[in-house]
Amino acid sequence: ETEYTFDDKREADRAAKEAQNNGLRVHVTKDGNRWKVRID
Rank of each mutant, 00 (worst) to 15 (best):
E11T: 08
Y4L: 13
A16I: 10
E1Y: 15
V28I: 12
N22G: 07
H27L: 12
I39K: 01
E18P: 02
V26Q: 01
D8N: 14
W35S: 00
N21F: 09
D8R: 08
R38P: 00
W35C: 00
H27W: 12
E3F: 10
G23E: 02
L24Y: 14
E18H: 11
A15G: 01
A12Y: 01
F6P: 01
A19G: 04
K9Q: 09
T29F: 15
I39F: 07
E1F: 15
D40V: 15
V26R: 02
E1K: 12
N21G: 10
K36P: 00
R25V: 11
F6N: 01
D8G: 05
I39V: 09
N21I: 11
H27T: 15
E18N: 10
R14C: 12
W35M: 00
A19H: 08
E11S: 12
E3Q: 07
D8H: 10
R38I: 15
E11W: 06
V37K: 01
E11Q: 10
V28W: 01
N33S: 07
A16R: 05
V28R: 03
G23K: 04
E11I: 05
N22F: 04
A19V: 03
V37S: 00
E11D: 14
R10A: 14
K17Q: 13
N21E: 13
T29K: 07
R25L: 08
F6A: 02
R10G: 13
R10T: 11
H27S: 13
D40T: 14
T2P: 06
D8K: 08
L24M: 11
K30C: 11
K9S: 05
K30S: 07
N33I: 04
R38V: 14
R38W: 10
A15T: 08
T29N: 05
G32S: 02
I39M: 04
G23N: 05
Y4G: 03
A15N: 03
R14F: 09
E11H: 07
A19N: 03
K36R: 13
D7N: 10
F6C: 05
A12S: 02
E11G: 06
D40Y: 15
E1Q: 13
E3K: 04
W35G: 00
G32E: 04
G32V: 00
W35K: 00
Q20Y: 10
T2L: 13
R25G: 05
A16L: 05
D7M: 11
R38T: 13
D7H: 09
T5G: 04
Q20I: 13
K17D: 07
N22T: 07
G23S: 03
H27Y: 10
N21Q: 13
E18D: 09
L24K: 08
K30W: 13
K17E: 11
A12E: 00
T5R: 05
E3M: 09
V37I: 06
T29M: 12
D8Y: 08
A15C: 15
V26N: 01
N21L: 13
G32M: 02
R25D: 05
N21K: 13
R34T: 07
K36Q: 06
E1H: 14
G32L: 02
T2V: 14
T29P: 00
D40I: 15
Y4F: 12
A12M: 03
K17L: 13
V28H: 00
V37P: 01
N22I: 10
A16D: 01
T2A: 11
K9E: 11
D13Y: 15
R14L: 11
R14Q: 10
K17C: 12
A12I: 01
A16C: 11
D13N: 07
A12N: 00
V28L: 07
G32W: 00
A12F: 02
Y4M: 12
D40R: 11
Q20K: 11
W35I: 00
H27R: 12
E18A: 11
E1R: 13
T2I: 14
K9N: 03
K9T: 02
E18L: 12
I39G: 02
L24Q: 07
A12C: 06
T29S: 11
N21T: 09
N21A: 14
K9H: 08
R10K: 12
V26K: 01
E1W: 15
E3Y: 12
T5L: 14
A19S: 03
Y4S: 05
E3A: 06
D8E: 07
